[in-house]
Design a binder for these strands. Sequence first.
DNA 1: AAAATAAACGAACGGTCGTACTTTCTTCTC
DNA 2: GAGAAGAAAGTACGACCGTTCGTTTATTTT
Lengths: 206, 206
Amino acid sequence: MSTDGRLLKGEQTRNVILCRAADIASAEGLEGLSIGRLATELRISKSGVFTHFGSKEELQLATVRKAAGVFREHVVEPALAVPAGLGRVRALLDAWRLYQREPVFPGGCFFHSTMAEFDARPGRVRDAIAASQRDWRAFLERCLREARDGGEIEASADVPQLAFELDALCRTGAAHALLHDDPAFFDRATRAVNARLAAATRPEGA
Amino acid sequence: MSTDGRLLKGEQTRNVILCRAADIASAEGLEGLSIGRLATELRISKSGVFTHFGSKEELQLATVRKAAGVFREHVVEPALAVPAGLGRVRALLDAWRLYQREPVFPGGCFFHSTMAEFDARPGRVRDAIAASQRDWRAFLERCLREARDGGEIEASADVPQLAFELDALCRTGAAHALLHDDPAFFDRATRAVNARLAAATRPEGA
DNA sequence: AAAATAAACGAACGGTCGTACTTTCTTCTC
DNA sequence: GAGAAGAAAGTACGACCGTTCGTTTATTTT
């Protein structure tokens, strides 16, 4: 790392590699990711790519971290720019759906793909993905709790349960939209989320 | 095919191969599936495996069909044994959750894994997976419609929307349970499903 | 039992994979 | 601008991939 803000050449290349890696992995999975392919597409030598990581697993882990950064940037930060409360919850879910639709990753949400891929494959990569997933739901729960503490969501609401449900609906909507190439599933998810939030703001919603 | 009901030797082996293939693919994906590995594990020669399918893509397609059969057997048929109506809906969802929990596939639901894998990968395999997915949701919708027509679910209920939501909740519950190795997610899904069904049986649930 | 057919084998192909080296070129520091 | 440090290239390796082919063994039919 240089003393000022600029990035060293190596850091730049590494970053370029990871951007592409995250793109590929979102569509073809972290196993479909290959060092040779990265090298070819980026016009770098295979060893040039390899040296940055030292092993494929390390490349996969770095890719997961990179993708988590992209996710944070596109979804979490926009929500943090909105005051805590129901508005922030809405902003968060809106940003998430935007991120799913827009080609920020060509293969849909990076984490949806890789989570299914490493579901049943113990190891450091799975642990990293699971941790990201926990962070994400923890943040969603935090936003919901803020809204509840501010009185915008019913006091008796089960926040973790609500977070689970909202997550499930949005996630599945995006996945179906991609698989069937039909954006109507995004609308289904939106409608379900709105209904769920509406119910949580009324006494008998839980 | 023999004239009577018995299976030819070749059909038997083919079936054995596909069983194992579906198991592997549920955990490692349809791309992670390899002919050499199948051969080693089943103590058959590589070419012996290959000849049954002629290409890897054909093997993947056959595996998808096999998995669809297993799914039908474990989830759809038990529900069909129950009289149409809300009871059948419940039976269907129960059978589904049982199928997800029990080691019918070692890597969780075959279709959840492969759907995420082929989301963004056009081709015959994706088409086959998408078709299975459509069949599944069509059946779920049929069961819900039966319940609605029988008056057990509110007449104004939006059946496709309800099917989407139930599917999303169960699917995601199983996925999270597997990823985090925490069966509590099954319970979250169950609770959400029950709440959703309860709401759909009361006038203001939609 | 003989003939016909199906199934499985074994070796080999060209490719790609991840990884390990050494060598060359850039970039930064003094 | 010289020297140190780092980044990238180049080459090679063994392993596995899907696929092809010719041969041999089982099974089925006549």
